[in-house]
Simulated assay, not measured.
Amino acid sequence: MTELVHRNVEDGVATVTLDSPRNRNALSARLLADLDAHLRAALADDAVRVIVLTGTGPVFCSGADLKEQRDPDSAPVTASMPDVLTMIWESPKPVVCRLNGTARAGGIGLVTACDFAIAPDTATFAFSEVRLGVVPAMIAVPVLRRVNPRAAAEYFMTGEVFDAAKAVEIGLLNRAVPEDELDSAVRHYTGMLVKGGPEALAITKNLLRELPGVEFAEGLRRMADLSAERFTSAEGQEGIAAFMEKRPPRWVPC
């Protein structure tokens, strides 16, 4: 059976591609299982420093597979949307979403679980769930951590389509660029990310998630301890030595 997700590794970057254009890369049981497997493989591969999530065709991801939702016994479920969203959100390796096009509903959940998101300026977005009589439930968890609350309320409740410029404005995307600049924009991010220490990047991701909820004085105490620990760590010492010796650190892919 043909895989609905593919993975390619080059120069420390694993590109994981949704490849089910016939149904607009809908989140079928098969696609979720393949996506789960390829994400796990990328996370386990020491040669991979950064993960890029993208798709084929004019649509990045259209959300849930509605045909399967009408017949939930039509395909065995081996991986769940919560599992995939959690894996992306908690990944110690940075995840960059390269939107090849439009995203809808659950597809936007994948976008917001990633650390960075870049889309062509022609892409459109919509939380279409309420118009089907359902709710943007699971995806609300990452979306509400990225998107302006007023905007989230507006688009969750109206289902209105909005463009890439608005997606940047409300915090859904980092950048919207002309289609012919998409790959160079993604390389801009991945090229910078592979220069960071793997441990430092993983810890910084965790810091960004947890620190805003910590009381101010307690946060300073914890961060002072963390700063001292990282300066004396093997990775920190290698980074300092590389800077002083004017060479790339050992973790930068050749």
Rank of each mutant, 00 (worst) to 15 (best):
Gly196Pro: 02
Phe125Ala: 06
Thr158Arg: 04
Arg175Thr: 03
Ala153Gly: 01
Ala152Thr: 04
Thr158Ile: 03
Met157Leu: 15
Val130Met: 05
Phe125Tyr: 14
Glu179Met: 05
Glu129Ser: 13
His188Ser: 12
Asp115Cys: 02
Leu132Arg: 14
Ser184Thr: 12
Thr204Arg: 15
Ile203Trp: 12
Gly159Glu: 07
Gly159Asn: 07
Pro149Gln: 09
Pro198Glu: 07
Glu160Asn: 13
Val168Tyr: 11
Ser184Gly: 11
Phe116Lys: 14
Leu173Arg: 04
Asn206Gln: 15
Asn206Leu: 15
Arg131Asp: 06
Glu129Lys: 01
Asp183Glu: 15
Met138Trp: 04
Gly159Gln: 08
Gly191Trp: 07
Asp163Tyr: 00
Ala167Glu: 06
Arg187Cys: 05
Pro149Trp: 02
Val147Gln: 09
Leu172His: 08
Phe162Gln: 11
Met192Val: 08
Lys166Ile: 12
Val130Phe: 01
Val194Pro: 01
Ser184Leu: 03
Arg146His: 04
Glu129Met: 12
Ile118Glu: 02
Ala117Trp: 05
Asp180Gln: 12
Asn206Ile: 02
Ser128Lys: 07
Ser184Cys: 05
Met192Gln: 15
Ser184Val: 13
Gly159Arg: 10
Glu179Gln: 10
Val186Lys: 03
Asn174Tyr: 05
Thr204Leu: 15
Lys166Glu: 15
Ala167Thr: 01
Thr204Glu: 15
Tyr189Cys: 10
Phe116Asp: 13
Lys205Asn: 07
Val134Ile: 14
Gly133Tyr: 01
Gly197Leu: 04
Glu129Tyr: 10
Tyr155Ser: 06
Glu181Pro: 01
Tyr189Phe: 13
Glu199Pro: 00
Thr158Cys: 02
Ser128Val: 14
Ala165Thr: 10
Pro136Ala: 07
Ala113Phe: 02
Ala202Asp: 06
Glu160Leu: 05
Leu144Glu: 15
Ser184Ala: 14
Gly171Ser: 05
Gly171His: 06
Ala137Gln: 11
Ile118Tyr: 01
Glu160Phe: 02
Gly133Met: 02
Leu172Ile: 08
Tyr155Leu: 14
Leu110Met: 10
Ala123Tyr: 00
Val147Trp: 09
